[in-house]
Simulated assay, not measured.
Amino acid sequence: MAAQAKILIVDDERDLVDAYVRLLERSGYRCAGAFDASQALQIIDAEPPDLVITDLSLPDSSGIDIIRRVRAKLPVAPIIVMSGHNSPGLHEAALAAGADISLLKPVSIAELRRVIGEALPR
Results as ranks from 00 to 15, higher is better:
M1A: 12
M1P: 13
A2M: 06
A2H: 04
A3G: 05
A3L: 07
Q4W: 06
Q4G: 13
A5K: 00
A5R: 00
K6Y: 01
I7Y: 00
I7N: 01
V10G: 03
D12I: 00
D12W: 00
E13M: 10
E13P: 05
R14P: 02
D15F: 07
V17I: 04
V17S: 04
V17M: 02
V17G: 04
A19N: 08
Y20R: 01
V21L: 05
V21G: 01
L24M: 02
E25Y: 02
E25V: 00
R26A: 14
R26Y: 07
S27D: 03
G28Q: 03
R30T: 14
C31A: 03
A32S: 14
A32G: 10
G33Q: 01
A34F: 04
F35K: 02
A37E: 13
A40L: 02
A40C: 05
A40T: 01
L41W: 08
L41Q: 13
Q42S: 14
Q42T: 14
I43V: 14
I43F: 04
I44D: 12
A46R: 15
A46E: 15
P48D: 11
P48K: 10
P48L: 10
P48C: 10
P48T: 12
D50S: 12
L51C: 14
V52C: 02
V52I: 10
I53P: 00
I53R: 00
D55Y: 09
L56G: 04
L56Q: 06
S57G: 08
L58K: 13
D60W: 12
D60S: 11
S61P: 08
S62Y: 06
I64Y: 09
D65F: 06
I66L: 15
I67P: 07
R69G: 11
R69T: 11
V70I: 15
V70W: 08
K73C: 10
K73M: 10
L74I: 07
P75K: 12
P75M: 09
P75H: 12
P78M: 02
V81G: 07
M82T: 15
M82Q: 14
S83P: 03
H85Y: 13
H85R: 12
H85C: 06
H85A: 12
S87L: 14
P88K: 11
G89T: 09
L90A: 07
H91G: 09
A93M: 11
A93G: 07
A94C: 12
A94N: 13
A96Q: 14
A96C: 04
A97M: 06
G98W: 05
A99M: 09
D100P: 05
D100R: 13
I101G: 06
S102M: 06
L103N: 05
L104K: 13
L104Y: 06
K105N: 07
P106S: 13
P106L: 09
V107H: 05
V107F: 08
V107C: 08
S108Y: 02
S108T: 15
A110K: 13
R113W: 01
R114W: 03
V115H: 07
I116R: 02
P121E: 11
